[in-house]
Amino acid sequence: MLHIVNKSATDRGSLESCLAMATKGSAVLLIEDAVYAVTKGGAAAAKIQAAAADLKIYALGPDLAARGMSGRVLDGVNVVDYGGFVDLVAEHKSCQSWL
């Protein structure tokens, strides 16, 4: 299953709720303001790195770039473009947007 999170982890609890309910092997894609969570030194960095042991973590490149965060992405996070976003949706049986 693909989980999509779009809100900053320092603003809302959606990333936390998502990580609690994502089963082992699922994919988590961070878009829009959620991309701040995968940046070095950020408040959610430790949480993301711990989650990356069981989950595949992706972040949307154009949203990182738009926020000046492209150069700060944590190791182990896969950066994808919109085409990669489409592939992730196609590859997983279902997706859930944690609005």
Partner: peptide, 18 residues
């Protein structure tokens, strides 16, 4: 429980969240 909920979600065909 969280685990039961996680498994329930994983077995769905369509999830719509509000």
């Amino acid at each position: 429980s969280v685990d039961e909920m996680a498994n329930l979600m994983a077995e769905q065909d369509v999830v719509i969240s509000f």
